[in-house]
């Protein structure tokens, strides 16, 4: 509860009263409402991996089940998470009203469009055979294309939302959209593998998948490195964000989970698998790697949100 910090004995300065960089306390775990604000992180995460899963499942691995799960994660998971987060959920429809200037309106419209296209595209395969197209038909392909495009926008818009915040230097960078996009795709890969495996099926080409994963992981690693270097070379506020990412408790999430567990270990597994291992051991390793990647995906989003610091209001000095 918000008042807990003031009515108990402990003395805490609200972020807005701080003279230095101020942490944003609205989005993500540890916000003003502690746990409940984490639903926004969940919404971003679910939106990313859900859309990613649809794209990966339909483009590379042709798994209808996985694609359906992906759409469901977006349509149900993301929506529910958003509603749980909102201060006034009954007015949620208002979120769509200003696509002209607001990335949130845009993103949520993308989401609706995506769910509509994806559902339409998948409809013939999930029992709605009465629709006048099949997944393979040109209309179906057009729907698919629409779904892929809108899914990409769903995957990328979070990045634009963050990047649009001018005073948060660690967000206000062109790296945000590609970073979020890549992570969404990678999350999609992981989700696809896990979904397919959980459904008792075998992924058609584990090798292809590993290769794709390795490429994605390498790209993500490169983006994270660039992100870090970028922060280190940027304003004092960005450097403070970086310090928090690597030098405070947040490092557990950022370095431990996001970089080591979510990037390096899966990378090692990916290369190790290509070199030696076969069969079930490889599958178990791959599954573990996927879970780690998803944890890393959530962690990096959490880390970025938590390290979001506003430039001091009076930064020019005195």
């Amino acid at each position: 509860m918000e008042s807990s910090s003031t009515s108990s004995g402990s003395v805490l300065q609200f972020e807005d009263f701080k003279s230095g960089p101020r942490a944003q306390t609205e989005w993500g775990f540890g916000g003003k409402r502690k746990w409940r604000d984490g639903w926004l992180l969940m919404a971003m995460f679910l939106g990313g991996i859900g859309a990613g899963q649809f794209v990966v499942s339909t483009w590379f691995f042709h798994s209808v089940t996985s694609a359906v799960v992906g759409v469901a994660i977006v349509a149900v998971g993301k929506t529910v998470a958003h509603l749980l987060y909102l201060g006034q959920p009954s007015r949620f429809y208002r979120l769509f009203l200003k696509p002209r200037t607001s990335w949130i309106s845009r993103g949520l419209i993308f989401m609706i469009v995506f769910v509509a296209f994806a559902a339409a595209y998948l409809a013939p395969d999930i029992g709605f055979s009465w629709v006048p197209w099949t997944t393979g038909s040109s209309l179906g392909q057009a729907l698919w294309l629409g779904a892929i495009l809108s899914a990409s926008l769903v995957m990328v818009y979070d990045g634009f939302v963050l990047a649009s915040c001018k005073s948060i230097t660690s967000w206000n960078t062109a790296l945000m959209p590609p970073l979020f996009f890549t992570y969404a795709i990678a999350g999609g890969v992981a989700m696809t593998y896990l979904t397919v495996t959980a459904a008792g099926k075998k992924i058609l080409s584990e090798g292809d998948m590993t290769t794709l994963d390795a490429i994605l992981l390498t790209t993500m690693f490169a983006l994270v490195v660039i992100y870090i270097v970028n922060m280190a070379a940027s304003t004092a506020t960005a450097r403070e964000s970086l310090r928090r990412l690597v030098g405070t408790r947040l490092a557990v999430a950022f370095i431990g989970l996001a970089i080591v567990a979510g990037l390096l270990v899966p990378l090692v597994i990916a290369y190790y698998r290509e070199l030696a291992v076969e069969g079930t051991v490889a599958s178990v390793l791959l599954a573990a790697s996927c879970i780690l990647e998803l944890a890393g995906d959530l962690s990096i989003r959490h880390s970025i949100l938590s390290a979001g610091l506003h430039t001091p209001v009076f930064s020019e000095g005195l």
């Binding site: 609205e26 989005w27 006034q88 007015r91 208002r94 979120l95 990335w103 949130i104 001018k166 209001v313």
Partner: peptide, 14 residues
Amino acid sequence: CVGCRYCAVACPYG
């Protein structure tokens, strides 16, 4: 207002 708090995050002045 729905309480999405985008404005609170985007405002440079807290």
